[in-house]
Amino acid sequence: MAELQKDPITRGDFLGFGILGAISGAILTIPPVAFVLSPVIKTNVLGQTDIDQGWQRVATIKDLKELKPGTPDVFEVEFPIEQVYSDKEIQEKFPDSQKSQSDFTVRHAVWISWKAPVKQQGTQGSGGDILGEPEKPAIVDQKSSGFTQSERDEIRGQLNILSNSCAHLGCPVRWFPDKHEFLCPCHGGLYDINGGYVGGPPPRGMYNYTQAEVREDGTLYIKHGYDIEPGLNKQQPYVV
């Protein structure tokens, strides 16, 4: 082996290393990081969402008529999403191509039930709210279409529209008819019929769909969006 040759580093060399290193380093780090983090930038910084913000139909008046008080029923809603596949652009640019004829959707299970009046607000460790009997607005059974604005608001006000995603770790919750509670199968989170917290590890009650409306023909529509406290937004676990 030859002896090691340790030439001195001149100021010019040092400067050269600095400038060249900075250029290559910047090219090789900043764009890749932004590339990988772009979903974070889009959703957390710019506040965009992948989920279509339009109204989606949940249940018809017939479904609502059949919805018994005290028994939640599950409905499937498909929210179109725009993520990676860019179906929309392809359909606009190349309408005749066989690519992406259908929108990609994410299917949500939505628990719908008639609200039970809260007789007494639950306190910490009390095992949830004390509830009365769930009531079904009489108007639902009387009419089949042509609901007025006040009737529509009344129906909407009496409906629980809950996500099936457990507030603890997002497992799909299910209804236990004999216990009259929602149970999360993962870690045993319990919720009452209104989605209020009853017991177990979840930090809060079930997620409500906040934007919902009943139309003239009695059909229920919702938009994607939950009752997530804005103050906790950054730490609030999102519903997957």
């Binding site: 990988v36 983090l37 979903p39 974070v40 889009k42 959703t43 957390n44 969402t49 992948d50 989920i51 929210f79 999403i81 993520q83 990676v84 596949y85 990609f104 994410v106 937004n233 950054k234 730490q235 609030q236 676990p237 999102y238 997957v240």
Partner: peptide, 19 residues
Amino acid sequence: FVGGYVINFLLGGDVAGPA
């Protein structure tokens, strides 16, 4: 502190899908 960023990074957006 970084929970929201972590999940959006893993999801590649704000919903579990193709990304």
